[in-house]
Design a protein around this nucleic acid. Structure first.
Lengths: 267, 267
DNA sequence: CATGGTAAG
DNA sequence: CTTATCATG
């Protein structure tokens, strides 16, 4: 069995203060993808930077305290690549590829965007540049006999079942028609990828993976499913179980996101 | 008896969370001068903005979250003036004059400065502009038969007895020779003012009124006396008791400064 | 509502 | 070390 977790930690130093380290010590995952590390590697505690029993690779953003992704794996990767060949985004701490024996695992942190600001334009540029790379990555990997798994915070809820209050959010970044249409392409014939958790649970509400810190979103389960396992067909077909590790209560939360963990059967 | 307290609150909203409001409710002062309010009046809780039993006047800085002084008095002032006639500093939230029946009380927050930066030049410009106004204020008030009391954070320790580690601080803002010389002028024939607490306790170490939050300054009593009652001779001669309301322990501190309270006998 | 940077103290 | 503002989420 091959188990992969992905979680947006919303500042790894803060998450560590609140329980991340204990969570990592207790997980049975083989690979953990992190997003929003929001620290330079040197700013992390040694036990977080290089946890015992893990090989950790980091892709911090050039801008201090922003974004930043990582991949932790129990075995050493064959290769590690930062960025997806974009002059504008490769130093933004949003894309890290790690080659394991027969699968390339990616930690992705897509810009959140904000309607009517240049942050939304940036998100759209990022999406526009990413799609061709996703296609290319799938094709190259297929040639090499490898699967691809793009884990991370995609910052888009795909369908109405992917967020609690979809009506109120139709004009909000993260559920805009153009963003959803872009995910349609990623998950359709053009991209050729599968939304693993949705494939396992086609009729479920959610399961949500992010709840705003504002108001009572967590208590009311007013969440969004924006953290995905996006996999090539061969790997997606081997997914046997998915779970969102939602905290018991507010006090035990160490991020506004929850880990999304999927178990894949061996090939 | 006429009792006046002065205290740099280091952010009134934070101070309120930690105990300022209870302190105000318990004080026997007739007038309270505040410095470093660091809030626009509208950002303050109503009970802090207009405490029951007090007349409160505020002089916020134009720059949000910076400086800001206030005077609270149990009786309504006859007049209130913001600034000391300086184009550069009148909107900086550092000078507020309040006329009470026979004394003008001022809340002053002198810039802290920082050696080798333009913040030190700003401090020196402020001092240069302030001294003539102090002289003028004393003279005009004398003509009107009024005393003057300039309370606040002067951000200068006058003499070696006014800070714990004076040797280590000879080149630090707050104990520079030129700053001390300027205070000599304020407190000498030119200014004509008296350092009330020092006059009451000529031989004392301190009493300190500020302890840095850094290190163990508070526990070690490694403090500075930078908060003064600076009064015209007639009022200074009526001072009968001074106390610094140093917190019992770290947990009960609600600012890095302590209130400096003086009781003045009636004329 | 929370993180982290930064300026100020 | 602590207060704020700010941009980001």
């Amino acid at each position: 069995m091959f188990t992969v977790s992905t979680v947006n930690v919303n500042g790894l130093r803060a998450a560590d203060r609140k329980g991340y380290r204990a969570w990592l010590a207790g997980t049975d995952a083989d690979v953990v993808c992190l997003q929003e590390v929001r620290a330079e590697p040197e700013q992390l505690a040694p036990e977080v930077l290089n946890p015992e029993g893990w090989h950790a690779h980091w892709a911090p953003a050039a801008a201090k305290g922003r974004a930043g992704v990582a991949v932790l794996s129990r075995t050493a990767p064959d290769a590690v690549r930062i960025g997806f060949g974009s002059a504008g985004f490769d130093a933004s701490g949003r894309w890290l590829e790690v080659d394991l024996p027969d699968v390339t695992v990616v930690s992705l942190y897509l810009p959140s965007g904000e309607v009517d600001t240049d942050r939304q334009e940036e998100k759209e540029r990022f999406m526009a540049e990413l799609l061709p790379h996703l296609v290319d990555l799938r094709k190259r990997s297929a040639d090499e006999g490898r699967e691809v798994l793009v884990c991370g915070d995609w910052n888009i809820a795909h369908r109405e079942a992917d967020l609690r209050n979809w009506r109120a959010n139709r004009k909000k970044a993260g559920f805009l028609p153009e963003e959803r249409a872009w995910l349609d392409r990623v998950l359709g014939d053009e991209g050729g990828y599968t939304d693993v958790v949705r494939a396992l649970h086609p009729e479920a509400e959610g399961p949500y993976s992010w709840w705003s810190y504002r108001g009572r979103a967590f208590d009311n389960d007013a969440g969004w499913r924006i953290d995905y396992h996006v996999a090539t067909a061969g790997l997606a077909g081997r997914a046997v179980e998915a779970r969102v590790e939602r905290a018991e209560d507010h006090a035990s939360r160490w991020s506004d996101h929850a880990p999304v963990t999927v178990r894949y059967a061996d090939a």
